[in-house]
Computed example of a mutant assay.
Amino acid sequence: MSVRPLLTREQSRAVDTLAAEKYHIPGVILMENAGRGSAELLFARKPANVLICCGPGNNGGDGYVIARHLDLLGVPVIIALFCSRERIQGDALINFKIIEAAGIEILDCAAEHLCESFAAQLSQADWVIDAMLGTGVTSPPREPIASAIGQINASKAQVMAIDIPSGLDCDTGQPNAPTIEADFTATFVTSKPGYQKPAAQSYVGEVHVVDIGTPQALLREVLR
């Protein structure tokens, strides 16, 4: 893929809006492409046991797609869900219902204090996927996600962040307390301005851009 200009938080939102409203691309298709591309990136690293940490929004929806594709590839996966099931909506809900029907194991971790089963699964995972908070978040992570970030950073597992490490500001590159320390970040459409800032380097790790099928005309419109 050719080098593309960086997208700010506002421009990333504009991509999603224009894709649906002008270019007739349903969000669920973009989510599928994002999740499948991320799953393929991780599969190339030969994961043995993957714990996928999902928040309430579309970042979590990407995580559900990743879970399905890794499961299809024969990789053991478990979802750690950091919101009540009732909060999941839209495209994320479509993909959540698929993994429910497929029988992929889901740990409900929405309580204020992390359940013991999360720590147990984290200790067995060689890879953790951070799909908790997306590029739209600008404030420090709240519980129980804040505690999960601390445990993940302290674990021996390698970490793959989806679009952005949870807790990082995608425009400024400034980390909140706490912020995921990823080994690599799979980000969508283009990289983000903050990822090149010195303050972000120890959090994003290697940055890999996943193309999710947005037309060149759409990107030109957003970037002009």
Rank of each mutant, 00 (worst) to 15 (best):
E86K: 13
E143V: 04
M31P: 10
V222T: 07
G103Q: 09
I104R: 02
L168F: 00
V65Y: 10
G134I: 05
Q124V: 10
D169M: 10
Y23Q: 12
A110S: 15
S12D: 05
N58Q: 12
N49D: 14
V65F: 07
E105Q: 14
Y203L: 06
E32Y: 13
G74I: 06
D169G: 09
D108L: 10
P198Y: 09
M31I: 04
V189I: 15
I162Y: 05
L114Y: 06
C54P: 12
L7P: 00
I29P: 07
A177Q: 15
L122E: 00
D126L: 05
P26V: 06
G167S: 04
P5A: 09
V222F: 03
C170Q: 01
F82G: 07
D183L: 13
W127R: 01
S166A: 11
A34P: 11
G35L: 11
A146I: 05
L51C: 08
K46T: 15
A120M: 12
L168D: 00
A148E: 03
L6I: 02
Y64K: 11
C54K: 08
P5M: 06
A161I: 03
P144H: 10
F118R: 05
L73H: 11
E112Q: 13
A48D: 14
G213E: 11
V28I: 15
D71R: 15
L42S: 06
N153F: 04
R36T: 14
G35E: 09
I29F: 14
L168H: 00
P26G: 07
H69L: 13
V50C: 01
A67Q: 01
I66E: 12
L114V: 09
T185A: 03
V75I: 14
T187Y: 00
Y195K: 04
D91V: 02
I212Y: 04
L6T: 08
H24N: 15
A120Q: 13
A199R: 11
A80R: 02
G60W: 01
V75K: 08
G173N: 06
T138I: 13
E181V: 13
T179R: 00
I162A: 04
G205R: 11
P215W: 01
E221Y: 10
H113D: 13
V209P: 06
A186I: 11
P178G: 02
S155G: 00
Y203F: 15
I79S: 01
R68V: 07
L70M: 07
V204I: 10
V75Y: 04
G55A: 09
S147R: 12
V209A: 12
V222H: 01
E143P: 05
E105N: 12
P26M: 02
A199S: 15
C109M: 13
V77W: 02
S191G: 15
E221N: 09
G90M: 03
Q121E: 14
V15D: 00
A199Y: 07
V50K: 03
L219S: 05
Q174M: 14
T214Y: 10
G60K: 02
T185G: 02
V65N: 05
